[in-house]
Amino acid sequence: MRKKIETLGILCLLILFIMAILYPALNIISVSLRSDDAFQTRSLTLWTDESSFKSYFTLFLETKFLTWMKNSFIVSFVVTLTGVVLASTSGYALSRFNFIGKKAVLFSILMTQMFPATMLLLPFFILLAKFELINSYIGLIIIYSSTALPFCVWQMKGYYDTVPPELEESARMDGCTRFSAFTKIILPVSVPALVITALFSFMASWSEYVVASIVLQDPELYTLPLGLKSFQASLATQWGLYAAGAVVVSIPVTILFIFLSRFLVSGLTIGSVKG
């Protein structure tokens, strides 16, 4: 009984909180449904007589939204894959081995995040131009991966630290090599961390605008944020389209999260080790 009341209380609290959180999001949805192409709304009725899905039709039929979406998927997919593969391996090495320069690696990885990104754009451009990577996804993917990696590496390492090393030692004695012990035993246990790494890498590339805007200059190659931004101009934004685009952009992320969050459950429990 006490537990039920408690659950109910928590539920109420959460719902209140979620309402507060969703308000701005609903605002965006209501802009996307309105016909006047204006951003400021005073009332929060989602649907009025003048509402329509016109912006959404325009978005899909008259703009290159689908192309951008495809491009974004390609880029985000590769970045996510790179992120997961590289972060899970290097995080593992950093968690399990003691070697010269380990501390330096861990610290310098963090330090790379400390320089204001705005000032990196100019040298990025020079670098990419030198290697002829302007207008190519390789440049973009390399930059995205390496900006997402520091967090992912640390977070994987942190998770591995909580996994008892006896697990892979057992596997090695059972006949695995170092590497197969890692893939067969440790990776499955680390699914929650992998999920976060994947989600984060995906997000880092999915809605990134600034770097994309210097790397991609062919509209055919645009990713979603670049495309969306083109609805926005300094003094005349297509608010309806822009908002509709934003809503659609956030859908894959939400779906991805719903999908991934199933694995965001205990990978490791006391079952493997005694208390």
Partner: peptide, 8 residues
């Protein structure tokens, strides 16, 4: 988190 930061 899912919404583009810019428009939010």
């Amino acid at each position: 988190w899912a919404l583009p930061q810019y428009i939010a």
